Amino acid sequence: MFARDTRILIVDDMNMFRAMVRQALNTLDFKKLTEASDGTGAWTALTQAKDRREPFQMIISDWNMPKMKGIELLKKVRAEPWGQGVPFIMLTAEAERQNIVEAVESGVDNYIIKPFTVDQMKQKLTQTYEKLNKPKAKAS
């Protein structure tokens, strides 16, 4: 599982869902949480954190937001050298196959479908951690 001091950016245009994510993460003992209300605000927070040399270590972002959608934020993050290894979890009510395929092709690490429980959040975080920390196969 991710370290409890992981710096996490929560991105959602709805206060209620940001509060739900924050509460679930707090229940799981994560404390270094920052919030943004859309992708544009998230991008600003990400670049400022990088410039301070305190980059975010995980992003949990909604899909549908004004100004910049979560999928656009994902693509911008993945286009940057510093953003290629940052765990990115899409939080969304969008469960359509084409959206999931687009997110996977764009480099999303996991998906949480709204609404969710703390147990579901923990399961997705565990899956993401295990996926990203799987030992690499050695070349023969």
Results as ranks from 00 to 15, higher is better:
residue 104 V to M: 13
residue 13 D to K: 08
residue 124 K to Q: 07
residue 80 E to T: 06
residue 29 D to Q: 12
residue 117 T to F: 01
residue 37 S to H: 07
residue 79 A to K: 06
residue 45 A to D: 08
residue 94 E to N: 09
residue 65 M to N: 08
residue 47 T to Y: 10
residue 129 Y to N: 05
residue 107 G to L: 02
residue 122 K to G: 06
residue 51 D to R: 06
residue 64 N to C: 10
residue 31 K to V: 14
residue 138 K to Y: 02
residue 24 A to I: 11
residue 84 Q to M: 10
residue 94 E to M: 06
residue 56 F to A: 06
residue 88 F to V: 01
residue 9 L to A: 11
residue 21 V to M: 10
residue 96 E to D: 13
residue 103 A to K: 04
residue 65 M to Q: 09
residue 35 E to K: 09
residue 84 Q to R: 11
residue 32 K to H: 13
residue 62 D to M: 10
residue 27 T to M: 14
residue 123 Q to F: 12
residue 137 A to C: 04
residue 112 I to E: 02
residue 112 I to Q: 00
residue 140 S to A: 07
residue 72 E to W: 11
residue 116 F to I: 10
residue 138 K to H: 01
residue 105 E to I: 04
residue 139 A to C: 01
residue 51 D to E: 15
residue 65 M to Y: 06
residue 93 A to G: 14
residue 1 M to T: 15
residue 14 M to Q: 15
residue 7 R to H: 14
residue 18 R to E: 02
residue 48 Q to T: 02
residue 11 V to I: 13
residue 117 T to Y: 03
residue 33 L to H: 12
residue 105 E to L: 10
residue 30 F to V: 05
residue 128 T to A: 02
residue 96 E to G: 08
residue 60 I to Y: 01
residue 62 D to Q: 11
residue 37 S to Y: 07
residue 130 E to F: 14
residue 81 P to K: 12
residue 63 W to E: 11
residue 54 E to C: 00
residue 100 I to H: 07
residue 17 F to K: 05
residue 122 K to A: 14
residue 10 I to V: 15
residue 101 V to M: 09
residue 32 K to D: 12
residue 82 W to K: 06
residue 34 T to D: 14
residue 49 A to S: 02
residue 26 N to C: 11
residue 135 P to W: 01
residue 7 R to E: 14
residue 39 G to H: 11
residue 69 K to T: 15
residue 132 L to C: 06
residue 58 M to G: 08
residue 140 S to R: 02
residue 96 E to Q: 11
residue 122 K to I: 03
residue 94 E to A: 08
residue 40 T to F: 13
residue 24 A to E: 01
residue 59 I to C: 07
residue 58 M to L: 15
residue 107 G to P: 03
residue 38 D to N: 14
residue 26 N to P: 03
residue 37 S to F: 05
residue 19 A to R: 13
residue 3 A to C: 09
residue 62 D to T: 09
residue 101 V to C: 04
residue 32 K to E: 13
residue 49 A to L: 03
residue 23 Q to Y: 12
residue 46 L to A: 11
residue 41 G to C: 06
residue 78 R to C: 03
residue 82 W to N: 11
residue 48 Q to H: 05
residue 22 R to F: 03
residue 10 I to C: 05
residue 43 W to F: 08
residue 70 G to R: 03
residue 136 K to P: 00
residue 133 N to S: 07
residue 43 W to G: 01
residue 34 T to Y: 09
residue 105 E to T: 08
residue 116 F to K: 00
residue 5 D to P: 10
residue 97 R to C: 01
residue 132 L to V: 05
residue 132 L to P: 00
residue 85 G to Y: 02
residue 138 K to R: 01
residue 112 I to R: 02
residue 120 Q to V: 09
residue 55 P to H: 05
residue 91 L to A: 06
residue 124 K to C: 07
residue 81 P to W: 04
residue 109 D to N: 15
residue 77 V to T: 05
residue 133 N to H: 14
residue 69 K to R: 15
residue 45 A to K: 04
residue 60 I to K: 00
residue 89 I to T: 04
residue 11 V to M: 12
residue 14 M to E: 14
residue 9 L to S: 07
residue 86 V to Q: 05
residue 99 N to W: 13
residue 38 D to I: 11
residue 137 A to H: 07
residue 12 D to P: 00
residue 111 Y to R: 04
residue 64 N to G: 08
residue 92 T to Y: 10
residue 13 D to A: 10
residue 18 R to C: 13
residue 64 N to Y: 12
residue 87 P to S: 01
residue 98 Q to S: 13
